[in-house]
Simulated scan of single mutants.
Amino acid sequence: MTETDSTGDETGHTDLLLRCAQLYYEADNTQQEIAKKLHLTRWKVGRLLAEARESGLVRIEIVHPAARQKAEEQALCERFGLRGAAVVPENAAGDEQELLSAVGRSAAQFLSDLSPVPKLLGVSWGRTMDAVARWMTPGWANGVHVVQLNGSMRVSRTPNGAPELAARIASAGAGRVSLLPVPAIVDEPTTRQALEQDSSVSGVLDLASHAGVVIFGLGALGVDSVLVESGYLSADDISGLGAAGAVGDALGRFITADGSLADPSLDERTLGVDLDVLTSIHTRIAVAAGPRKHQVVRAALRRGLCTALVTDAGTAKFLLEQP
């Protein structure tokens, strides 16, 4: 067969690339069919299609909810000094719950892909972490020890699922779990101090502080917070935290835009790993989804609370566009 790509100029060659790409990707022609139509060899068609992709004339985009946006991930790592990031595309979800599920799935995969696989893993609780736990697949680890990072015993009828969440992650990793048998927030600092002196509590807190990897959600400031739903805080408490500059919480500890504690007196009544201990742990994976989490994610990055971030493209864009 004699080839007829004899124009020799750049415009003609680009036109040929475009024609091949349109026939292949838009009209669903096979390479053999294209070769016949354009009087080319099948080998030449294959080369032209490869060139179209390499030159950027053709861009292939994966839009499955499990897909990740590598450019944004790299940019986040470079901008904020992260060791890892996973970014779920915005079009992977049609609403808030689907977005949360997509980010939870990505976080579960991110955790499963760690090398080496963690032997001692610290976990928080809440809606975000529940989404992560639901996507942990059996066999992701072999003999993992999961330890709870912050208190969770509920004080209302609204369930938070913290023990079940931690147990689900441990079970999928053929491991065991150490729970923190205390409330998230108590009425007095002296109560917290007394509880922390109990060996069943101090032992878990010490274990958590020695975890090699922790994974935790970031909570937005609002009356729909799980801390409100679980009875620890009231709407007035949330209003007061907002007035103090709080933008959300990490491990139940509310932070301002620069990552500092919004209300030290509340922090003195909060049980669990504190933020200074958190930042001493080697691998810290923060997970957050949706526009309501933008400010608290930014604050967490400013404080250096995480070494890796799993989030959505909208949040990534917000973070990268900030001065």
Rank of each mutant, 00 (worst) to 15 (best):
R105P: 08
D274P: 08
V88P: 06
T7L: 04
L233R: 10
T128E: 06
S200L: 11
G84L: 13
E72I: 01
A108E: 01
K37M: 12
L120M: 12
T270H: 12
A133M: 10
T137P: 06
A300G: 14
T279I: 13
A288F: 02
A172F: 12
V214W: 10
T158N: 12
V182E: 02
I185C: 02
A250Q: 04
Q109W: 07
M136W: 06
S225P: 06
L207M: 14
D206C: 08
V186K: 05
E26N: 11
Q109S: 11
G212W: 05
V226Q: 08
T256W: 02
K37F: 11
L320W: 04
A235Y: 02
A316P: 11
D15W: 05
A246G: 06
R303G: 03
S209N: 03
L120I: 13
K70T: 12
D15Y: 02
D95A: 14
A184N: 14
I238F: 04
E98A: 15
S260Y: 02
D198Q: 14
G222M: 05
L218W: 01
L309K: 09
H39F: 10
G242D: 01
L16D: 00
T307Q: 08
V103E: 02
H294N: 14
Q197E: 13
L180D: 05
E61N: 14
A220M: 11
A289F: 02
I238Q: 06
G139R: 00
G219E: 11
P163V: 07
V186D: 10
V310S: 02
L149P: 09
L205I: 09
P189K: 15
L16M: 03
A93E: 13
G304F: 09
F216H: 07
Q148R: 08
S6E: 11
R253C: 04
A102W: 11
L179W: 03
E98L: 03
L121V: 13
A174F: 02
V155E: 10
S234I: 01
A27G: 03
R79F: 06
E72V: 04
A66Y: 14
P323Y: 03
L82Y: 10
R79E: 12
A170V: 03
A316E: 09
M129Y: 06
Q197T: 07
G94W: 11
D95E: 08
S156C: 00
L40N: 03
D187V: 10
R292K: 13
T7K: 07
A316L: 05
L221A: 03
L38S: 00
G151D: 04
T191E: 15
E96G: 07
D237W: 00
A257D: 08
R134A: 14
I238C: 01
G104T: 04
F254I: 01
T283Q: 10
L241C: 12
E78W: 04
D236K: 01
G248L: 04
P118R: 05
L207F: 05
P291S: 12
G143K: 03
D187G: 15
L180Y: 02
G175R: 00
G203Y: 01
D258S: 05
A243C: 09
G12S: 03
M153T: 08
E321A: 15
L261R: 11
D130E: 15
L266Y: 02
D5E: 10
Q97P: 08
A133D: 06
Q97M: 06
R59D: 09
A27K: 10
A244Q: 07
A86I: 05
G139W: 04
M136H: 07
A133N: 04
S280M: 15
A250S: 15
